[in-house]
Amino acid sequence: MIQLPCPWCGPRNATEFHHRGEVTPRPEVASVTPEEWRRYLYFRRNACDWVEESWYHAAGCRRFFKVRRHTSTNEIVQAGRVQ
């Protein structure tokens, strides 16, 4: 099990977190086309590479935060507080 560096609590077991997935910016609601919106809803890069993703420390500080994780090695280089 990987350890995730929570920017608030320090390293914790991954089971304490909810994986929210790749960060996908929300399109502007007033002008969005169906294609853009569904791209936002359903399309993910799913790359075997460095991915910016969002996690929620559900069993800890209950903060959302972003990490850059390599999906093949699970190496994590940066953990940033959202707030």
Binding site: H18, R20, S54, Y56, A58, R62, R63, F64, V82, Q83
Partner: peptide, 13 residues
Amino acid sequence: WEWVENWLQTEHP
């Protein structure tokens, strides 16, 4: 609860 926190923390801090 998690949904509310998500919108507050990530979209409207």
